[in-house]
């Protein structure tokens, strides 16, 4: 069974409950803040994982995002959707991290550190899934940060141009052109991959086994 996506239902959740949680967390109620963490850790973790590419960094970034969120509770404007605010903080944090590590070289072979879907899938399915997963992460990793972000927000969070613009603090037309450019880059890297693919695919499928 395919695990469910980070969909609008999860993000949009019950607005009133959320407002109450934010109010209580502001007043110093730790349990209320834990409720917010519970509600948003999956979207934040997924964003961080897609942006950063490793489970370890995704966890660190998720923790940092919630610490920032806690410190900035007083600045939250109830007019804004809570999910947009949370995703904005997470996005900016991920971009910061990527900029900081830009000097550090990461070869593609080092990238995939198991952050696998938790679903109890059949082993063959798992292998296929892992391959897709790796393909996605490698393709995302070829994009510059700001392009990667719009792609993740579009495909994983299904945000509209306007919502993305609000989250990123830019305009809808900037989002539109970034998405367009990101797609061109992805198409190019997809073409490159399929040119190299046949041999790589086979090697990956039979790890440690020599071909007859």
């Amino acid at each position: 069974m395919m695990p469910s996506r980070v969909d609008r239902g999860l993000l949009g959740a019950t607005m009133e409950d959320e407002c109450v949680l934010v109010e209580r967390a502001r007043a110093g109620d730790r349990e209320a803040f834990a409720g917010l963490v519970q509600a948003y850790q999956t979207p934040v973790y997924n964003l961080a994982y897609r942006m950063l590419g490793t489970a370890g960094e995704a966890e660190e970034a998720t923790q940092e995002t919630f610490l920032r969120l806690y410190r900035r509770l007083d600045t939250y404007d109830a007019q804004q959707k809570l999910s947009s605010w949370v995703l904005a903080i997470a996005s900016h944090h991920c971009i910061d991290r990527l900029r900081r590590r830009r000097t550090v070289h990461l070869s593609l072979d080092e990238v995939p550190e198991a952050a696998m879907p938790s679903a109890d899938e059949a082993p063959e399915h798992g292998l296929l899934q892992r391959e897709r997963e790796q393909e996605m992460q490698e393709m995302l990793a070829t994009l510059p940060e700001s392009y990667r972000l719009v792609i993740v927000l579009r495909y994983w969070y299904d945000l509209s141009y306007e919502e993305m613009a609000q989250t990123l603090g830019s305009s809808a037309s900037a989002v539109k052109s970034r998405l367009h450019r990101a797609r061109e880059l992805l198409a190019a890297s997809l073409a490159r991959r399929s040119a190299e693919q046949p041999t790589r695919r086979l090697e990956r499928r039979l790890p440690g086994h020599a071909l007859p």
């Binding site: 469910s4 996506r5 963490v37 489970a55 966890e59 998720t62 938790s118 897709r132 792609i151």
Partner: peptide, 21 residues
């Protein structure tokens, strides 16, 4: 990308976050 699954955050993440609050 549309077929990409949601990843479960590692177990105990909420507790680890709350420990830092």
């Amino acid at each position: 990308f549309d077929g990409a699954p949601t990843l479960e955050p590692p177990a105990g993440l909420t507790e680890r976050i709350m420990a830092r609050i």
